[in-house]
Write a protein that binds this DNA or RNA. Structure first.
Lengths: 183, 183
DNA sequence: TCAGGATCTGACCGATCGGTCAGGCATGCT
DNA sequence: AGCATGCCTGACCGATCGGTCAGATCCTGA
């Protein structure tokens, strides 16, 4: 019955990704995941310290890319910041569609967990950049709606090829973002 | 200790609206609501048959307006449908900011409950209308992102006056929607 | 005055949650 | 052969969930 380490570990991770994306983090029990893998709940907790650690390992790649994008944003202002933020976030959203779907509406509470302490600040900076660092309400509203909308919606486009979805989202963002004042 | 019917009933409804908007439907227990009102959990269940009935009564006004919007949409096509959908949904989102926040990410599961059986079809038609009934992927993607983004984001603008928020969102939607082909 | 309905509550229920623990069972090293 | 180690499991734990119920308390009208 005993399989190689990496095998079961990876299967649990994959099953969790599938379930979380459909029923959310809180809406998925360890029992659900174990059932999908075909093992016991105790086995899930043998491979992962707790439910939160499972989520953290699942989100790690996406968070790494988000961090990289945050680094690219430092120093950029105005239209340049908007363009980098738009391209970077759209690409991230398309590549990590399923991981982002996990956050469905549970973003605020999930961010309270220590493993995701910095994400809130990063997404705030991303929103600021997409607004061209403008403090006009219209610009800030547009940036927030776009980021939230793409996060929320991209999971529903599982059947659309990556590059087609990326092009459509990028075109949308460029149309929708409030242009910064000409210097 | 016993208060008039409408008083406690209304207080429970208001407390539920506040708590649901912050921690979501599933994330809020009947105990939480009772604590906020200052009564027992049994009292909450005396005034409402169950948790779902409490949610249904809370959402009823917003659902009524959504139904009205759906009626206005019948027969409209192209740019006319887009404009009615944009104005109608932005207005609804602004007026019912808190009610919509309740749905935070729990939309899919909440729709399974019998009280919200028709909402899925209505929101599908709304998305179609906002896309100008076009079947181009770009138009459908833009419509979905805008609807999801506004739903998700409008709860965070509690400090912005209704008319200012409405104007900003409407301008955003008009910029962002993919224009329908000229005839 | 008193019966009866409306309002409210503490105690309780079964189900499910995340998590713990002792032990079973292979495998591989000495 | 004997032992250690990694993998896995059933049984169990306390907490919390939505919901039920019998009864206490209050208000009102006859």
């Amino acid at each position: 019955m005993a399989r190689a380490v990496s095998e079961t570990h990876g299967e649990i991770l994959a099953a969790a990704a599938r379930r979380f994306a459909v029923t959310g983090y809180r809406g998925t029990s360890l029992q659900d995941i174990a059932r999908e893998v075909g093992c016991s709940k105790a086995t899930v907790l043998y491979h992962f310290a707790n439910k939160e650690a499972l989520l953290a390992e699942l989100m790690a790649p996406a968070i790494g890319v988000l961090r990289d994008l945050d680094d690219q944003l430092t120093g950029k202002t105005g239209a340049a910041a908007q363009e980098v933020a738009a391209q970077g976030f759209v690409d991230l959203a398309v590549r990590f569609r399923r991981e982002i779907a996990v956050l469905r509406g549970e973003f605020p509470e999930l961010l309270c967990q220590p493993a995701f302490a910095h994400i809130q600040q990063i997404s705030d900076r991303l929103r600021d950049a997409l607004a061209g660092h403008s403090d006009r309400p219209g610009a800030r509203i547009a940036a927030l709606v776009l980021l939230a909308g793409i996060s929320e919606a991209c999971a529903e486009f599982a059947d659309i090829p990556d590059d087609e979805l990326r092009a459509a989202l990028l075109a949308l963002v460029r149309r929708a973002v409030e242009p910064v004042d000409a210097p």
